[in-house]
Design a protein around this nucleic acid. Sequence first.
DNA 1: TTGAAAGCGGTACCAA
DNA 2: TTGGTACCGCTTTCAA
Lengths: 340, 340
Amino acid sequence: MKRPTQADVAKLAGVSRATVSYVVNQTAGVPISPDTRARVLNAIERLNYAPDIRARSLRTGGSNTVGLLIPDLHNPHYWSIVQGVEDALRSEGLDLLLTSTSLDPNREEKALQTLSGRRVDALILTLSFPEQSKTTLTQLAANGYPVVTLGNSAFNVDAVIATYRNATAQVMDHLLGLGHTRIGFIFGVGSKELATNRMSIYQSSLAAANIRVDPELIDYSGVRIEDGYQAALRLLNRSPRPTALLVINDWLAIGALRAVDEIGLHVPGDISIASFDDTEMAAFLHPPLTSVRSNGHEMGHQAASLALERIRQPNRPIRRVQIEADLVLRQSTGPAPASQ
Amino acid sequence: MKRPTQADVAKLAGVSRATVSYVVNQTAGVPISPDTRARVLNAIERLNYAPDIRARSLRTGGSNTVGLLIPDLHNPHYWSIVQGVEDALRSEGLDLLLTSTSLDPNREEKALQTLSGRRVDALILTLSFPEQSKTTLTQLAANGYPVVTLGNSAFNVDAVIATYRNATAQVMDHLLGLGHTRIGFIFGVGSKELATNRMSIYQSSLAAANIRVDPELIDYSGVRIEDGYQAALRLLNRSPRPTALLVINDWLAIGALRAVDEIGLHVPGDISIASFDDTEMAAFLHPPLTSVRSNGHEMGHQAASLALERIRQPNRPIRRVQIEADLVLRQSTGPAPASQ
DNA sequence: TTGAAAGCGGTACCAA
DNA sequence: TTGGTACCGCTTTCAA
């Protein structure tokens, strides 16, 4: 039981294959008599014909599709990126091909190859392991293939990056200003390189306040909620106990909140918690989270725009779009408890 | 700057296109001399050649890819479905093509067509608007195209369905047993048809306990957290106030928890909350949610297995896999408050 | 207004 | 062990 092809339609309608193509695509400048058109349409209907996109794309050279690579399905931040890309693409009538690498370094490069092997019109990449994927990516770019990196500007391609510098400094100042001196950091990220800048600002902010950076207060956890929970338990068992926790994303912060709760402490009375991303849920948690907003939707949208521009203007100079993160204050941060 | 093709490689290596194909695919039964192989490999390397998957798939008839349609990126339940599908596929070396419809009825059918137009080897569909997509889907199935529906068994195709019947009755009995008589229902679902069975059990359970089904206690909300929050506010403003809230999924339950909090009430002291899906976060919320677990990962995994079977055995009889939801009790449900 | 045929980039059969 | 070539399903000149 094979799917019907253009030829089947042509035969049934008693026309040539070219004619079928004309009516299917409403090809400009090729007038078709109402009668023929009707016969073709009828045949299509009866056979339930739908064109083979592979063949069309092979012939025309364009696929009308953009490929998107994201690292991990578990972090809601990425879903807003996907949503942003999708919205932008859809409004231009393009399709989205989505792949996740589940934070597997080997998968990432393979996925890259698969995606580009499909000859999608452009690639939007949120890399977790830039080092691993470097060769493949560089070669693609060298071939003139439209590539946009998201959250990474280490390659010679269009890029969208969130600049966490100021906002991270702000959140640290916020915590320091509230009198916190022992600030734990739950650093659960797929690949360390992704967030080194945030780490270094965490450290330099402490240094600027004349506070020693205590390695015991930095926890390199996994990326699941459970990992955030465990990390928080570990940190809260240090003594003296930290009075604030900075968490690398909202998702892990959920786990941290639970840990505080189970130990019988309160947020923000005993422990302040601040995180990154400000995803949809942040404002609704208990208590609502102070979070550094990095607007995934906007990032996705911009990335898609860059991709479209590049498709239409292959030779325009490389562009980098920066999206400035900002701090959203809510109830999960407060003054450090008076004494310890 | 076009990407190199097989022909380019052949020319550079001084061999025929066929030979290139042989070494690329390590075609069984076609021995290639070490020398030629080396020359070809070298040419591939130098040109940075990667085969065009469209062309290959066109010729071979298989794409090694399964398409997955999900309704909505906002509900974490779907994330776990995607993850389940992906895991199953990956272990068999297949690729995943993901599309979301953002709960737009028009998009759903269009996405269906795009996906099938790509001639992926199979389609896994989580339909929100079965009525709209009926024609397209039926025709695909009639053509013998491998299709698996997830959460819907209304079509004559392989299907994975979660049976909520028992677990929903259980959660209702649980609440009724705790003395709740006014149980609100936040029914925020992309399309009503998706959860009518849960609704009817909600109603019949009440009836069986001789409790009138109060339409005022059923809130048809949207699908975002904010919607769940607003719905809860509305319900909690009824008088007499409901003492328990059943929420159609964990995501909306986050909003409901927030609403209770803001009104100054407590869960479960004043209000019990139970929801569906039992996604990763449920156990970590404040308080941990009583939830009907429908194991999205398992559903996705099973769906992928059915798809694979169907690909390999196009004529095997249609199979339906049922996944029984079960109730997970946590701290968000408790005895109804003594008096009102 | 319609049709014939070349070709997109591969695969695989058959011959050499 | 390698090469020639028909063909997958479509688009797009060019001619009729």
